[in-house]
């Protein structure tokens, strides 16, 4: 087995030790889903707001839930802990690439998240009386966009966690990241509802790809051409962040190895 596959497998096996934790995390995301569904049902009961109809909003929120549950199994905590406690020193004497190893770990936790997402989405669809699934090309685009959520979210969390090399504490970093992520990704409210200038910033930011892009494609708010454009931006950020994170890691290791842990 390859070095990275082995690390992914390690997390995939170990994650069941945290099943209660994972489950509670998903329940929290689920609560948010229920609350938002309730609010939007009232707001959209009579007429669409800014072009969002009630059925569209249901689908939007389900995609938001799925995006929120992906790559959510606290691998960042483990990494933050290893950095703060100095255990990261042992990662430095392994013949593997640090960033690829952490990505492999994030992928290892994916299976449980996907299982939980499938359970929630199918039961929600049943409760809401079925979901409209987009037509062929849009569906394919949506699938690509969802796949890209995985590396994108990993990278945003990873870059945030690297801040621990300088801050020595993870709580503040994590809260700031979550606040920015939920606002600028469209997870809190669709980006169309933000003030124009903020909406534009958000749309071009790496965060839009976390929720807004797959959700808008799924509900058909954007056509195929615009959808391609959004997915291209999402992919662009994945590439930029992947290499940007490497530079940041190099600076972080310098910080550790030059100034002492």
């Amino acid at each position: 087995m390859g070095a990275y596959t082995a690390q992914a497998r390690g997390v995939a096996l170990g994650i069941l030790e945290y099943r209660v934790n994972v489950l509670l995390g998903i329940v929290a995301t689920l609560m948010q889903l229920v609350a938002l569904l309730a609010v939007w049902q009232v707001l959209l009961a009579d007429s669409p707001v800014q072009g969002f109809t009630w059925p569209q909003m249901q689908a939007y929120l389900l995609v938001t839930f799925a995006c929120g549950a992906l790559v959510s199994t606290n691998s960042d905590f483990r990494m933050a802990f290893r950095i703060q406690s100095g255990l990261v020193a042992l990662d430095l004497v392994k013949p593997v690439d640090y960033q690829r190893s952490r990505f492999a770990e994030a992928l290892g936790g994916l299976w449980l998240e996907v299982v939980l997402i499938l359970i929630v989405v199918t039961s929600a669809a049943a409760l809401l009386g079925g979901l409209t699934v987009p037509a062929g090309p849009a569906l394919a685009l949506f699938a690509i966009s969802m796949l890209l959520v995985v590396p994108l979210k990993f990278l945003i969390v990873y870059v945030g966690t690297l801040a621990c090399f300088w801050t020595q504490s993870y709580m503040g970093v994590q809260w700031a990241r979550i606040a920015v992520m939920s606002l600028l990704s469209g997870a809190l409210i669709p980006l169309a509802y933000l003030p124009g200038w903020l909406g534009t910033i958000a749309q071009w930011s790496p965060f839009a790809g976390l929720t807004s892009t797959p959700a808008l494609i799924y509900i058909g708010r954007v056509g195929f051409g615009d959808g391609m454009m959004l997915v291209a931006v999402e992919l662009g950020w994945v590439i930029v962040l992947w290499f940007g994170a490497r530079l940041l890691w190099r600076a972080a290791v310098r910080q550790l190895t030059v100034n002492g842990g």
Partner: peptide, 26 residues
């Protein structure tokens, strides 16, 4: 490298699995 005060074992895996991960890493 062994730092007596630190461990490189996976907390949430049986030792056997930790070893298996190391086997593949190396």
């Amino acid at each position: 490298v062994l730092f007596g005060q630190r461990t490189q074992l996976w907390w949430d895996l049986p030792v056997r699995e930790s070893f298996a991960v190391l086997r593949d890493i190396y």
